[in-house]
Design a protein around this nucleic acid. Structure first.
Lengths: 390, 390
DNA sequence: GACGCCTACTGTAGCGGTACAGTGATGAAG
DNA sequence: CTTCATCACTGTACCGCTACAGTAGGCGTC
């Protein structure tokens, strides 16, 4: 897609009255102190500890400050002197892009933001990647870190450790001594797979997510180098499927948004008898669903599709998705609460064991799954069929 | 507005000799300098300006630092000394929740994050609201601010001004002397409304968004206290509709996610002859669409529905939404670029005029609009019909 | 009227860095 | 053999604020 947007500079305005920033010396506590005729400390107290001076003097000081255009104590200086910055870092895989792109991640962070808001803590997005010698996890000021879904052996994590920052891991392999919040991915996946088994499916496809190679169809190596969630879910699925002797074919992709059709075709080519597909996420499931419909495969009559997460649109899609619910906002709230707890604990010098929280998952059966029917989907997939473009 | 600052709930984090006798003293540049037998300044250079010392000495110093468990120069101290924090603030209405909840906002921030990543700048989410005397816009350390979609007269904005922070306004009323990035909301809305006019619609409903009162149906007061985007779009719609003498009924809501049914019912009750609805966003449009379908109103046969934004799901919905496209990622990129430019400009002491950028919008005609048919939708809305719960 | 105990303010000593102007040694140019 | 630039490192002076330990005065107490 070529960027169709040509920026049009509508108007160029005079730079505004900058009040001669260069000439005027910066206003600090001392400036105000001199003007009012009190000590700098008293001015500091006027802003930060109102109970330490008389109301009248405080009013005088604030008035003087206002007159001088003082914007309040400098955050950086305050951070250094106080030893805390008032910000919690969220450490993310890749850049911060995923935090906003992925719907599940979005809801998670939204919940964190909501939980953190009343504490007045700011939220800083910290990419886990290093870049030209810049290591955000080492260089960004924060009081605590929330690590979401990155490599457990990422250098970012060890930097945080080195800095001695209170840390909470979310959707990651738990590490000794670090608090963590997880969901019962494995149990949920197992329940989803068992559901298909109970419906009578004997040939099941799996569409899962991994950033690393290998991608595509894998029949022999069930576990690859996927992240925690993908791994746990895979284990759960295979638990149930293998126990029931179901034939399983997995398709790994890096592309969770598109590629539903590619996954579907690859799976049905690899095993034409597949009658059901388990997906890593609802997004993937929806795309498989759309691909199937575009190809004239009836869901769930000819193909059952199962998602994961139970995002809001899982129930809007037609047929509504059978999926595994996880309470994403609750996960966010708990993670935020854990961070806050760590911060408070730090001030009281308590040393408590790191907590590990695991949230339950729940199978939600809707309309995208049914027992296998006689018409195998494979008959539908043939050269010359639509390519599923939409 | 008295700048009260209540001491943080976090309490005082251990730092320096406040850590207690039993604890190991904190490792600083001096610690390393003493160990290696060089000056503190040389150690600083080893980390921050490698070209200032010999490679061998640098290696020695880094080794010693590593051995002592030094995590690199303290970001807070560095920020104070250098005068820059390496973080860009994003100032948001409400808490940071909306940043993640709203799909358009998400994509916008995602693009910003992507654009900012290569610069190594961190992204800090700054709520615009004040809270128990905490004023994030005043108290959070940042080098520049990106203000998204908040009240133009929010105190947050004036704090930023007072601090003299480089600022970029996005989707807001432009302010003299401050850079801004906007999209041609008005033009896009006008095009959308004109499209309906051209199709022959004579009774059009509008579903728009505002956080403030009044909500519900308004026929007389076309412009309320909505934000910039909502206002511009309303103006654009009315431009075309009024010019064509079309009967217009508006429904204002705070709830863009649900409430599609409420909006639809209210509009059709207010004017049963309505054959088309213009919506503030695709989310709203989709919900109106769903509500209509649930009530057995055929779209577009009996009711045309138009969205705004052209979010990805606008084309996934059936019928695919006619909508107004804005290039949200491009908006994000431009906003980020503007911030970066301001930051660079600041270092070179140039004083350039504040730029105003306006991105184009484009009407995208899909399947949710058609000419009005004979069967008025009103016949369908009757007591006893389903309530549209989904 | 010495004593203690508030309240209201001040002085000092950092917090952990960085900028910048030295300083002495080295080697090349004149 | 100077002269002078360069390299590699050092010393000092901050950055702007806060913690904490004073200090001075007012006032009730016995």
């Amino acid at each position: 897609m070529p960027p169709l947007a040509i920026p049009s500079i509508i108007g160029i305005l005079p730079g505004g009255d900058r009040m001669g920033v260069h000439t005027m010396a910066r206003v600090t506590l001392q400036t105000i102190a001199d003007k009012v005729g009190v000590s700098r400390m008293t001015v500091s107290n006027a802003f930060s500890r109102p109970d330490q001076l008389s109301a009248t003097l405080r009013a005088t000081i604030l008035a003087a400050a206002d007159e001088l255009g003082y914007a309040g104590p400098d955050p950086a200086a305050r951070a250094l002197a106080r030893g805390s910055t008032g910000a919690v870092g969220i450490v993310l895989t890749d850049s911060a892009v995923t935090a906003f792109t992925d719907e599940v991640a979005s809801r998670f962070f939204g919940a964190i933001a909501g939980e953190l808001a009343p504490t007045g803590l700011a939220l800083t997005l910290v990419p886990a990647v290093e870049l030209e010698g810049r290591v955000p996890a080492r260089d960004v000021a924060m009081d605590a870190a929330l690590v979401y879904h990155c490599d457990p052996d990422s250098p970012a994590l060890s930097w945080l450790q080195k800095r001695g920052l209170p840390t909470v891991l979310v959707d990651q392999f738990p590490v000794d001594g670090i608090a963590s919040v997880n969901v019962a991915d494995r149990d949920g996946a197992r329940a989803a797979a068992q559901h298909l088994v109970d419906l009578g499916h004997r040939h099941v496809g799996i569409v899962t997510f991994t950033v690393h190679e290998p991608h595509g169809i894998t029949q022999s190596t069930p576990l690859g180098t996927e992240g925690y969630g993908a791994r746990e879910r895979m284990i759960g699925w295979l638990d149930a499927l293998n126990a029931a002797g179901v034939s399983t074919t997995a398709f790994r992709t890096r592309d969770s948004v598109d590629g539903g059709d590619a996954a579907l075709v690859a799976l049905l080519r690899a095993d034409p008898l597949i009658t059901a597909v388990l997906c890593f996420s609802d997004v993937m499931a929806a795309n498989v669903l759309f691909a199937a419909q575009d190809r004239g495969i009836a869901v769930p009559e000819q193909l059952s599709v199962v998602g994961f997460d139970d995002t809001p649109f899982a129930s809007r899609v037609r047929p509504a998705l059978t999926t595994v619910r996880q309470d994403v906002p609750e996960k966010g709230r708990l993670a935020a609460a854990a961070v806050i707890a760590l911060l408070e604990r730090g001030s009281t010098d308590e040393v408590l064991p790191a907590e590990r929280t695991v949230l339950p998952t729940e199978l939600v059966i809707r309309d995208s799954t049914a027992g296998p029917r006689t018409t195998p989907a494979e008959l539908i997939i043939a050269p010359g069929m639509g390519t599923g473009g939409r």
